[in-house]
Design a protein around this nucleic acid. Structure first.
Lengths: 190, 190
DNA sequence: CTTGCCTATGCAACGAGTTGCATACCAGGA
DNA sequence: TCCTGGTATGCAACTCGTTGCATAGGCAAG
């Protein structure tokens, strides 16, 4: 279970509340993991019960109190143990690809808009990643070890989004070609 | 839920038993979805109960009987309905990246072997994909519409594996650099 | 002063995927 | 004859992730 460990890493990088963690999952952690706040609070509760993390109530003014968590020794040990055991690459799951294969039994042209939507979403993600890279890893900086590791993970996200954009262009070209071919054969028949 | 629809697409491409579907998930369907045989049988049962697919007992000699499924009209309709509604891109989940970020709080050198394992696994997958491409989509062939769509999905898998291999090389270079830096500062301290 | 929005935490039900196990038929080799 | 391995189907328990909902305080705009 990697969510626990992603949270441990994030709390090691900087202690924080469930709410703050949820926002990190929209930024730097989002480069490699996603989770809703509900999931985060549930896991935090379990980790606190297991003694992996500590909790400290922090009153705030102008906003509700928060519970700031930090990693305890057993949590560090659990992370180290998990780091040592091998993990398998994620299994492939690509919903849009299911639709593309299914388009043969529907209308390829109907998938174009959907594919363009995905293209926009990935272009946005790439733009956010690149902005994050410029902000957090400027040229000529002297990165710490942790920052070097964060950067190489981000480079992975950037490479993924670039690759995906190129592929989606390939998909769009293919769908448009097939749509033209269908229109042509329609005209032939009528 | 895309597993049902992936199975519908596969059964449209060619009717088959649960066992045969499971093997397809190791080949062409594996380019975009994974599932165990347990999952497949469970979903087939539900789809049969819902009238999405038909089942026919086929006796075989030299091996156990099998239940061959094919898509019924309601199944085709369900697939068409699902194709028409938008889906979101998958959420990011990358276990190895969690470990990379965690390496700052452990030993970066200890991750090298694991990363190399992943590199080998992805290189193997790429080789299988390329072999599948040569076999199923030879140069100069005249692909049908369905084959064109299958091919563009496979090209996505190939692009993903190539990108991943390049990134893993980047990761390995980074880990080795950090490992050397740690060794050097160890020598300085001692 | 009400309405919307942000901060902050959480429960409950459900759905999808994983893991372990079970059954049964048949073939081929030790 | 027994053991291994491939074909073929399936149940049960569990974990993880998703979705909907609930509560509560504070701020700013209309």
């Amino acid at each position: 279970m990697a969510l626990e460990h992603a949270i441990l890493v994030s709390l090691l990088e900087r202690p924080g509340s469930g709410y703050e963690l949820a926002r990190r999952f929209d930024r730097s952690i989002g480069y490699f993991w996603t989770a809703t706040h509900q999931q985060i609070y549930r896991v935090l509760k379990r980790m606190e019960a297991d003694g992996w993390i500590d909790a400290q109530d922090v009153p705030q003014d102008g906003r509700p109190d928060k519970k700031v968590h930090s990693v305890a020794a057993p949590g560090r040990a659990a992370l180290a143990a998990w780091m040592a055991e091998p993990v398998e690459p994620e299994s492939v799951r690509h919903t849009l690809a299911v639709k593309i294969r299914g388009a043969a039994y529907g209308d390829p042209a109907a998938l174009i808009a959907e594919t363009e939507r995905h293209r926009t979403a990935h272009a946005d993600r790439l733009a956010r990643y690149l902005a994050g890279e410029r902000r957090d890893f400027p040229e000529g900086g002297e990165p710490t070890e942790s920052e070097e590791l964060q950067h190489v993970v981000l480079r992975g996200g950037i490479a993924y989004e670039r690759m995906t954009l190129e592929w989606l262009d390939d998909v769009l070209a293919t769908l448009r070609r097939l749509a033209r071919a269908r229109t042509a054969s329609d005209r032939t028949q009528s």
